[in-house]
Amino acid sequence: MSERMTDRLAVRKTYKLYIGGAFPRSESGRSYPVTDTKDRFLANASHASRKDVRDAVTAARKAFGGWSGRTAYNRAQILYRIAEMLEGRRDQFITELRHTGASKTQAATEVDAAIDRWVWYAGWADKITTVTGAANPVSGPYFNFSTPEPTGVVAVVAPDSPLLGLVSVIAPAIVTGNTTIVIASEPAPLPAITLAEVLATSDLPGGVINILTGHRTELAPWLASHMDVNAIDLTGVAHEDRRDLEETAAGNLKRVHHPATTDWADDPGTARMTAFLETKTVWHPVGV
């Protein structure tokens, strides 16, 4: 008797959605095949539905009070923790990015940049108020100050850059206390779900970031029309589709962010944070 040598059968990962800190399948039961650049099957991704969108908005709204109420220092530590967890899975993400067509060097560069971007935004949590707030010298006996506050629930249509682009749109939205629903890149959704595994182990409260995979043209209009969504980021929306979504978003006067083309390697600046901030001004008399 000789032992028959066999390759061990790999255990494949099921890619699901990320809603409220859990990993549910789409309630629709639908999925779509994701392939690499040579058209080889990689995995089935969940094909989210309108109901999943609504569940994600509910989760984001539920998480908003707690997340926006945390101290800025605490949010900074959690974003930094995400960077730590991502660093630990560096090789895994390089492999995932290579499936999307990146060379080994490109993939490594992108993962490193994504980790560093979390670190960069982590540091902003307790500084953005200083930079965008003000003490206002009004002409009267009043103390008057303005502070930025998060807009609320922010819907994000992520760009096709599957990791760096994704991180670059999520981090600035949540660092200030917003909660989000993100539609991941349609052709390359798998790194987004793997990123959700990082988020789930980083002390980020469930519901702060909710990630959906599926068809953008199907899901984005439900987010644009949802009356409990306060803002929408159209970065990943094709130019010709923006007009309809903006028209829909006017229904409850969502703040709409529609940047010109972005090079994700550039210095991000503060525009993506201030796009989802409101300014609150408080007056109080001065006297004895």
């Binding site: 009004v138 009043y142 408080v282 008399p285």
Partner: peptide
């Protein structure tokens, strides 16, 4: 966007 505490309806060009 504007909260008046122990006052109301105050406006000033320096105040957002």
């Amino acid at each position: 966007g504007v909260v008046w505490a122990n006052t109301f309806n105050k406006f000033d060009p320096a105040s957002p």
